[in-house]
Design a protein around this nucleic acid. Structure first.
Lengths: 245, 245
DNA sequence: CGGTTCATTGAGCCACATCAAGAAGTGTGG
DNA sequence: CCACACTTCTTGATGTGGCTCAATGAACCG
C-alpha cells in the first residue's frame, strides 16, 4: 500500500467515486483532504468494540472487515461485511453498537467525529451521499433478515456466494457477474457461519453439497468458481435486485 | 378518525414531533401542508407490493403495518413493523422491495414522490431528519438480524415483547417501561411468527412457556402483562440499548 | 347455532447443532 | 530438512429444537 500517494490526493483514491465523498466537488474534496487521516489495521485487529466509544468516522479504503455482535454466552452474529467504500460509524452516536474487526489488512480514511458531523451539516453533497449509502445498507440488512429468518442452510450459502459475487463485480464496474465466475472469499468458514447464523460444520457440508451438485467448484478453501451464475441464483431463492441503485 | 382536523393543520398532528417533519419550522410546515394528502387503509389492505411502483412516500400517522417479503414457495419474513411516525418508501427508488400491509386501520400522510424528493433536496431539516430515522431503522434491522440468526425461540419471543413494550412507552414519552407493564400486541400469532422466523405453533408454545415461568401473564390473545420487565429483558439475552437515540 | 377464523396443544420427524475424529495446510525450532 | 504444534477445514455419528401434521378449543358472527 503506497500511503504517501493516498495521502497526497483524493483524486488518486480508489474509492473516490463510490465512498461518502463520491458526490463532492473539487472544493469540498479540498476540505476533506485537510481533515482526513489514514490508518491501517492488521488482520484480526479491532476497529471498534460494542459499547465503546468510536471517535472517528471512516471510509474503508482497502481490505475487508466484519461488523458483529457477540452475546454473553459467545454466540456471534455478523450484521455486515465491510468492503472498500463502505462507511464505518454513525454520525450522532459516539458509542458503537457492534464489534468491527479487520478480516484482511484494512486501510481506513478517517475523520474526527465532531469535524465530520459538522461536514455533514454544512455539505449537502456529503449528507445526500450518506443518506443514499445508509438506505442501501438498510436494504442489505433487511435482505439479510429474510435470509436469516426463512432460508435453509443451502439457500443461505448460495445467496451468500451470489451476494459476494455481485459485490466483487460491483468493484470491477461490471453490472452483473458473467459465468463462469471466479470468486475469492475473504472470510473463513467461521466468519461465513457467523454471517449466516450457521455453524462452521454446516457451512462446510453445504459447500460440499453445492460442489457435488455441480453448482460450484472448489479451488481451495478461499476460492471457488461458479460455472453458471443463474443456477446458483435460483438455488438461493433469489428473486430480487438487492444491489440495484 | 377526525380527518378534517388532521387536514387542517400539521400543528394538531399526533406525529408532528417524531415523524420526518419533526425538525421543520413553521414555514417549512406550511409547504408540507400544501402538498400532503391523507389516506386511510382497512386492516389487511395492501399499502405497497414488492416489485411494484410506490409513487407516494408517506408517514404513518395512526395504526400499524408490517413490511415483509414472501418467497416463491410462500415462506414469509417480516423485515419491519411500522408504527406511528415511521416513514414508508425510499427516496430515489420507485419500486418497493417489500410488501407493506395494514395490520390495523392505518392513516398515512402522503407526499407525491417527485415533490417529496425535491423537498429532501431543498429542505435540510427534512433531509437531516430522514437520515436520522434511516440510521435508526438500520440499527433496528441489524438488531433483528442478531435475533433471527442467533437467538432461540424463547429468546426471540422475549425480545419481541421487550421491543414492543419499549416502542409502546416511546409513544407515551416515558423513557423506559415501568413494571408491571401492560402490553397490547397489534399483531396476530401468524404475524409475530413472520417477524421472528418461527411458526405460529412455536410462538404459541413459547408464550405459554413464558407464562408458566411467570415472566408474563396472558390476559387475552392480544394483551399481556409483564410483571417484571427486567426479568424479561434478561430472558431476551438483551444487552444493548437498541432504541437509544 | 353452524361456519369461520385464530389460538392452543400433542405426536412425530427432520434440518441443523453438537460432539468427535481425522485431514490438510502453515509456521517454528532444531 | 524433518518433527512438532497449531490452526482451519472436512467428514461422520448422534442429539435436539423447532417444524409439520393433526386435533381440539375459543371467540366471533351472520
Amino acid at each position: 500500500m503506497n500511503m504517501a500517494r493516498l495521502k497526497d490526493s483524493c483524486k488518486a483514491c480508489p474509492i473516490r467515486h463510490s465512498a461518502v465523498c463520491a458526490e463532492c466537488d473539487t472544493d469540498e474534496l479540498a476540505i476533506l483532504e485537510q481533515v482526513k487521516s489514514y490508518r491501517t489495521y492488521a488482520p484480526g485487529e479491532s476497529l471498534a468494540s460494542a459499547g465503546e466509544k468510536l471517535d472517528h468516522l471512516s471510509s474503508l479504503v482497502t481490505g475487508c472487515a466484519t461488523m458483529s455482535r457477540t452475546l454473553e454466552d459467545g454466540r456471534r452474529q455478523a450484521v455486515g461485511l465491510l468492503l472498500p467504500a463502505d462507511f464505518i460509524g454513525r454520525p450522532g452516536r459516539a458509542i458503537s453498537l457492534y464489534d468491527i474487526e479487520a478480516v484482511s489488512e484494512v486501510t481506513l480514511c478517517r475523520f474526527e467525529r465532531v469535524q465530520f458531523e459538522r461536514l455533514v451539516r454544512e455539505t449537502p453533497h456529503i449528507a445526500a451521499r450518506l443518506l443514499t449509502m445508509t438506505l442501501d445498507e438498510l436494504d442489505a440488512a433487511r435482505e439479510m433478515a429474510v435470509t436469516l429468518g426463512r432460508r435453509t442452510a443451502r439457500e443461505k450459502i448460495a445467496s451468500f456466494l451470489v451476494s459476494m459475487a455481485r459485490r466483487q463485480t460491483a468493484v470491477t464496474k461490471r453490472a452483473v457477474p458473467v459465468s463462469p465466475v471466479l470468486l475469492h472469499l475473504p472470510l473463513s468458514r467461521q466468519a461465513i457461519a457467523d454471517h449466516l447464523g450457521l455453524t462452521i460444520e454446516t457451512v462446510s457440508r453445504q459447500l460440499t453439497q453445492l460442489r457435488k451438485s455441480g453448482l460450484i467448484s472448489v479451488i481451495d478453501s478461499r476460492d471457488i468458481t461458479i460455472p453458471d451464475f443463474e443456477s446458483l441464483q435460483l438455488e438461493a431463492g433469489d428473486d430480487d435486485a438487492t444491489d440495484a441503485p
